[in-house]
């Protein structure tokens, strides 16, 4: 079964303001108009606090905008109820976080099976698929290891495998190499590029490391909650 074509993601006039106690409002994002075509590999760069994570969370429907609309293939999805956005995330988006965020009480294999369990994939099939994914990220034999028994690089590989579990069209990685040494970082980047290409998936890669950003085909730079530049890569 091949992955479904990723959606064309459009942000129209999107803003996100955090309210920390009514008087202080933090406008983390302002008036973003941005389109991510299917299968794009784009990096998002910018200084700390400029709104990269906020933007990624909105693109992945983890959060809802306080202004504007988000569309997937033309369908407004940004303001759908939690339950629907959770369903869209479960099937369509794979998240990879800086701090891996594996569930510490589950084994590597169980972590990868978790999203499939929520979609009621039969046990035999999900175990097989999780095993294949683990092999694909180069961790054959680590099925029964718990996260604390893995190195940081290995944990992030499991996280990549988990993000791929339900064959999402969109991969969103928030500083996936931020906590890894340069060797492991390069390996994770190579892995992400490879799995993205194999699946024709969209990949949005947040980083403030220009070295990392260089791998992308398109480069977005943010400043103060706005997109400052959006240019095709080298």
């Amino acid at each position: 079964m091949s992955a479904p074509t990723p959606p064309r993601i459009e942000l129209a006039g999107v803003g996100r303001t955090y309210r920390v106690g009514e008087p202080e409002a933090v406008p983390a994002l302002r008036d973003i108009d941005w389109t991510i075509p299917p299968g794009e590999f784009v990096s998002v760069e910018g200084p700390s606090g400029c709104g990269k994570t906020t933007l990624l969370n909105l693109v992945g429907l983890l959060d809802a905008p306080t202004a504007g609309e988000i569309r997937w293939d033309g369908t407004p999805v940004g303001h759908r109820p939690d339950r629907e956005r959770a369903r869209l995330r479960l099937k369509g988006v794979g998240f990879i976080f800086q701090r891996f965020y594996l569930l510490p009480t589950l084994t590597a294999l169980e972590n990868i099976e978790l999203p499939m369990r929520a979609l009621r994939v039969p046990r035999a099939e999900r175990t097989r698929r999780a095993g294949d994914l683990l092999e694909e990220v180069g961790l054959h034999g680590k099925e029964r290891s718990f996260p604390h028994q893995l190195s940081g690089g290995e944990e992030q590989r499991v996280a990549v495998a988990r993000a791929l579990a339900n064959r999402p069209g969109v991969l969103l990685a928030d500083e996936p190499t931020g906590e890894l040494d340069s060797g492991n970082a390069a390996a994770i980047l190579a892995l992400l590029e490879r799995v993205r290409a194999d699946r024709d998936a969209t990949l949005v890669l947040v980083t403030h490391n220009p070295e990392v950003a260089r791998h992308a085909r398109r480069h977005v730079t943010m400043r103060d909650g706005r997109i400052a530049s959006d240019v095709p890569g080298a």
């Binding site: 369903r87 479960l90 965020y101 569930l103 009480t105 999203p115 929520a118 988990r162």
Partner: peptide
């Protein structure tokens, strides 16, 4: 955190 991760992955409430 674990609950947040599960919800982020899209596991139903």
């Amino acid at each position: 955190r674990s609950i947040g991760i599960r919800r982020a992955l899209g596991l139903p409430a």
